[in-house]
Amino acid sequence: MYKKQFPLLLAFLGGAIPIISFFITTPGDRLKVTTDTLQDWMLIIAGAALLLGVVNLFQINLRKISTRAKGWPNALWLLLSLVIAATFGLADAFGTSVFGIWGGDVAFQWIQDAAFKPLQATMFSLLAFYVASAAFRAFRVRNVEAGILLAAALIIMLGVNPYAVKVLPFLPDATNWIMNIPNAAAQRGIIIGAALGAASFSLRILLGIERSYLGLQKGE
């Protein structure tokens, strides 16, 4: 009972309460408040799960270091970075200094500005190169469909280029037409299908038909 039915009951309640509160008002709007409360508490559960994740991170990387597995210096560096950032972050949160020398707020901000943000920007910047290589592959004219794709892409790229627009003034209108008519129509088709798919999937979860996400199998 505990293993099979209770998670399904929880999933049903967790899904049904927000749906009912979306359509119906109750005295004091209690259902809506319950929904908001459930969402707030989900954040608390996520916090607890984060701790679980950090424990897993330590387990895996400590094992790598102790067995001198391939790439163990990276694991060591990862754990060191984690401990240093967490120490300064916690010092910042509690408004204290670390070893009585560095103020937590200054040190944590320095880690953010000098290490974290540049690393994030580096990863994000790679997108430019990856877009170019993906576009090169996509625009190779191998059949009629790829040819149409290439023509549409050329019009759109030239349509936002001021020099090309000066020579061919019809390009912005052509770009808008492609984006707002065929492109929007295709996107809406996908969005409507996906929305119905999500609704159908959610209904399967509410009814307890879909249970593989809980690790349960058919008939359990």
């Binding site: 709007d29 408040v33 409360t37 459930l38």
Partner: peptide, 18 residues
């Protein structure tokens, strides 16, 4: 959750459809 919601609820809204 329902208990917490009861404490937070406003009494002005009644049964009805949105």
């Amino acid at each position: 959750a329902p208990g917490y919601a009861l404490a937070q609820a406003s009494e002005e809204i009644t049964w009805g459809l949105r």
